[in-house]
Design a protein around this nucleic acid. Sequence first.
DNA 1: TCCAGTTACTTATCGTTGTAATGTAAAGGC
DNA 2: GCCTTTACATTACAACGATAAGTAACTGGA
Lengths: 210, 210
Amino acid sequence: MGISERKVREKEVLRRKIIQAARELFAEGGYGNATLRQVAQKIEYSPTTIYLHFENKAELLKTISEETLAPLADTFNAIDEEFNDPILTLKNCGLAYVEFGLRHPNEYRLVFMDSQGWNEESMDLSEEEEMPGQWVYESFQILVQDCIAQGRLDPTDAETLTQVLWAALHGVVSLHLNYTRFAWIDQKALATEVIDAIIRGSGPKSKIFD
Amino acid sequence: MGISERKVREKEVLRRKIIQAARELFAEGGYGNATLRQVAQKIEYSPTTIYLHFENKAELLKTISEETLAPLADTFNAIDEEFNDPILTLKNCGLAYVEFGLRHPNEYRLVFMDSQGWNEESMDLSEEEEMPGQWVYESFQILVQDCIAQGRLDPTDAETLTQVLWAALHGVVSLHLNYTRFAWIDQKALATEVIDAIIRGSGPKSKIFD
DNA sequence: TCCAGTTACTTATCGTTGTAATGTAAAGGC
DNA sequence: GCCTTTACATTACAACGATAAGTAACTGGA
């Protein structure tokens, strides 16, 4: 019964074409400026065809954003294997996070800044379901716990420290995306300094991190 | 010639009515969900009348947001006078910033997160004009410089430290607004810890801040 | 081989949005 | 008393996301 499988494959191909076209338009003009009609025109299908593959515009964009953001998890894993030191891993993951966010501004916006559009009503995240991008928090939490377990960070509260760290890193990306023309110091230097300051400020009292 | 002055006054009254109505709708359903037609209906004028007072929807919302955010400057000044200690002032201004952002989520979003919509094209911020909300940075910069001047913070780079601090504080607000149902620790505790960690991590080596 | 049903689309359409062009009634100035 | 300006309303438009109603091709069973 290879025919129906070919159909499934072909359907998947069109789905990929939609995603690809949307991704490009989306990257050019940003989230709000991309329209379904433009996407449709780019792939030479009618606008309504998109609705056969995605519930609505929000779901299409959500799909794209999550797909784009997924590789960050791999990057985290690669860093984890490269460095044996948990503090160094934490630092480099933080840097990677910021760099990644700035390299994918539209997707970052959608997942970490614009979730208003689909978090409550249009998308139906049932009560305790995870918000998109929330796995980033959990990744950092594990790293922080590692640091505490090795006595490299103050063991009072892993949760608090993780939230502090994520907030600070997100702040760097978020402000950069918003104030693109502001006289920021070098982004990598800023990210580094943010992480270092927090790690220094959260280290065990007896031992100064260098 | 009191007649034309009355006219000006009446025009100002209508402008205030528009702003007030828009502010309410805006606060209820958020930025994107408020429509000019709803605003018009609320004040019992035609939709196009709004265009006699504001260039477009973006300018109306920008006006509202900046008006809402303005009192924060007064709060900063009040804090500055209440505490003589620059570190304490910095800490409390940071806390006030976070609290303010969370109390005015829509306006905060517009100024500090959604500026994409009007920063480059639709609004004409000529080359070196300030972005809205940028004064916050300058306020913090002055406070950081005060701390450095008194030897309470590491004097290497006021600019870097200010950016670190602002990014971290913004991150707290921004993430809270985006992940409203996330299991955040108490917002005030988080903000406090963010500021403390950074101040601790940026203090002069000889002296531990308490 | 025929035909009912499904699949994968398109076309036509709806309601809503921001906004521009045009119309209009009242008031002010000469 | 006429002309212009002011301060609105009315009408209209293009574009949007989304739905409903077609339609042509293909499929599977009798």
